[in-house]
Design a protein around this nucleic acid. Structure first.
Length: 603
RNA sequence: GGGGGUGUAGCUCAGUCGGUUAGAGUGCUAGCCUGUCACGCUAGAGGUCGCGGGUUCGAGCCCCGUCACUCCCGCCA
């Protein structure tokens, strides 16, 4: 038994009445009535009301303590009178009649009241230790720990073992920007922090370990987003040998499907099939129907291609877009015809300013079946009817139109589909909808450099193998490359790898890399594949993002104990910081100081 | 690198048409109160209106610039 407590603040009940107990924790709230005073004492497990009666002689002490001070109290558990029971508290049937109190830690001054719920984020990050005391973050981080424990168990149950891979590795030429670490023993040379253990896990497959996983830290020096933490994040990195895409899907559908079912907390987990399998949507179809490669399937709206109709119309604006290789898509908006003019105006202004779209057209169908709207006059009645039929819309409904450039479907059409569903409240917030996006293109055309380039992982196996690479238009080749998507978030990405050197050289050749370049850049991997490599593949679910979704948080920082802010700074520790000249000398580093640049301040 | 939003007391915010000494709630400090549970009551302290410049008789408010935070685009094999 601890000298600090006999129980936690969450466990005393009427069964303990009459016992003398000790609790330790933080003073959460205080109610002072002069003659009698109460404090709510909080620890990780809950809150218990402590009563200070006049004869305890401690009222003056406790009322002059700043909230959040840490105390140990000893006293007797008493049952509350019926009128005093607090049904909102787990321990609301009892209270502790205090006999003695020991102050373990005094608070000097709080930067904010802990009960306050809307504190600016930079302040929260500066005093993260205070922020982390709040119930919401305690819940999120416990959830994170539980999710990781669950994933480890499930991976073990599926025959996987966890292996560590290096944190100090070499800079890789493809992919995101690396974090670099100077080498003291090798002047002028740098390690890179791994963007993912990609090459190492493939080498483990070559080494015959068959089923690998790791709760792996990944480091990428890219700008953040709400669902993307700057600097570092964690993946459930996994790889397996002698498998096809179907084998990998089966494992992930078991692991991730069960994960969501286990932590859904009453929400419905929808896989789109009557088994454990997840719906599979080819990339091209996702782009067409949802305008996104990570569609939110809770959103029932389905986009339609109406290029042919506008091609045959008198609407020169859209015809011009089509002539330049662009697209015209229709997005249905059921039961929106009676929305006020201002609703439409706001959407159009949102599309032009926020999305940077040229415009947003729409045609409404009144309750009487009359078509109205800014672009209705450019179309014949038959053409409008055809559009409404394709969209499954009718009286009282609206169809929106978006014209966009060749490569702008995801940037323009997808957001409109999402916005309309939000505006019309069509998204079932009580669901997790999981699906695979499959058949990603192997290559895409790089408009900037006027060349064919890899569209995803260059190590992915092209569908059709060598035959496809040699005989097919590169831009039509698909890869065994897939993403796992939940509620509009990409939660995992993976591939069947290209384990055959000759296919690898050919794949790189198409993207403009010589065999010499491939050897120079990926020598380790390609040599490994010349020493007996099993067919293999895998993927890597993003743990932070999955926890964020399960916690129903809009921002990934809410599920990370000590996140960096939007400029990749740790406001509490003061990172990144300047280092001494001595340290730099040892590393053979000299830097040009940047005048006027602010040091990140530690709290 | 680009675009949007925000910035007034420790914190959350209000501040009208540009016009007297910039307000409220909360927290803080002191006091009162014997059953509260976001206790209540009284009083007090607390302000570089993010920063700099400009327009004006006069700027929290208008203009220009800048900084910080945040969301998005680019980027993220």
């Amino acid at each position: 038994m601890s000298i600090y407590r006999t129980h936690t603040c969450g466990e005393l009940t009427t069964k303990d009445v009459g016992q003398t107990v000790s609790l330790s924790g933080w003073i959460y709230r205080r109610r002072d009535h002069g003659g009698v005073a109460f404090i709510d004492l909080r620890d990780h497990y809950g809150v218990t009301q402590i009563v200070f009666h006049p004869d305890c002689g401690l009222i003056n002490d406790v009322t002059h303590l700043t909230l959040e001070s840490v105390v140990k109290v000893t006293g007797v558990v008493v049952k509350r009178d019926a009128a005093q029971v607090n049904p909102n508290m787990a321990t609301g049937d009892i209270e502790l009649e205090v006999k003695s109190m020991e102050i373990l830690s005094k608070v000097e001054k709080l930067p904010w009241a802990l009960a306050d719920d809307s504190i600016p984020e930079d302040l929260r990050l500066k005093y993260r230790m205070l922020d982390l005391r709040r119930e919401r973050l305690q819940h999120n981080l416990k959830m994170r720990s539980d999710v990781i424990a669950f994933l480890r168990r499930k991976m073990w149950d599926n025959g996987f073992r966890e292996y560590q891979t290096p944190i100090l590795t070499s800079s890789s030429p493809e992919g995101a920007r690396d974090f670099l670490v100077p080498s003291r023993l090798n002047p002028g040379k740098f390690y890179a922090l791994p963007q993912a253990p990609q090459q190492f896990k493939q080498l483990l497959m070559v080494a015959g370990y068959d089923r690998y996983f790791q709760i792996a830290p990944c480091f990428r020096d890219e700008d953040p987003r709400a669902d993307r933490s700057p600097g570092e994040f964690y993946q459930l990195d996994m790889e397996m040998s002698f498998v096809t895409q179907d084998d990998i899907f089966a494992v992930m559908e078991d692991v991730i499907g069960d994960l969501f079912r286990h932590f859904a907390d009453g929400k419905e987990v929808v896989t789109g099939t009557d088994s454990k399998a997840f719906t599979r949507i080819p990339f091209d179809e996702a782009l067409m129907k949802y305008g996104s490669d990570k569609p939110d399937l809770r959103n029932p709206l389905v986009v339609q291609n109406v290029a042919d109709i506008f091609e045959a119309s008198e609407f020169t604006a859209f015809k011009g877009v089509l002539k330049n290789g662009g697209h015209v898509r229709a997005i249905p908006a059921p039961k929106a015809a009676d929305k006020p003019r201002s609703w439409f105006d706001k959407l159009v202004s949102w599309a032009t300013t926020d999305l940077g779209a040229g415009g947003l057209g729409y045609i409404t169908c009144t309750a009487e079946g009359e078509f109205k709207g800014p672009i209705a006059k450019f179309l014949s009645d038959a053409q409008v009817k055809e559009i409404f039929t394709r969209c499954g819309m009718g009286k009282g409904d609206v169809v929106f139109f978006m014209a966009c450039g060749k490569h702008q479907v995801m940037k323009m059409v997808g957001p409109v589909r999402t916005k309309l569903a939000e505006e019309l409240d069509l998204i079932d917030k009580n669901q997790y909808r999981l699906c695979w996006i499959v058949d990603f293109p192997m290559y895409e055309y790089d408009e900037d450099n006027k060349k064919v380039d890899f569209s995803h992982n260059p190590f992915s196996m092209p569908q059709g193998g060598m035959e496809a690479l040699e005989g097919q238009d590169p831009l039509t080749i698909k890869a065994f490359q897939y993403d796992l998507v939940c509620n509009g978030y990409e939660i995992s990405s993976g591939a069947i790898r290209n384990h055959r050197p000759e296919v690898m050289y050919k794949a790189f050749e198409i993207a403009g890399y010589s065999a010499e370049t491939v050897d120079a850049k990926f020598g380790g991997m390609i040599n490994a594949f010349k020493l007996g490599a099993p067919p293999h593949g895998g993927n890597a679910p993003g743990i932070d993002r999955i926890v964020m979704i399960l916690c129903d948080e809009p921002n990934i920082r809410e599920v990370i104990a000590f996140p960096l802010n939007g400029r990749a700074q740790d406001l509490m520790m003061g990172a990144p910081s300047e280092v001494s000249e001595q340290q730099l000398r040892e590393l053979n580093i000299r830097h040009t100081s940047i005048p006027g640049q602010q040091q990140v301040k530690a709290s």
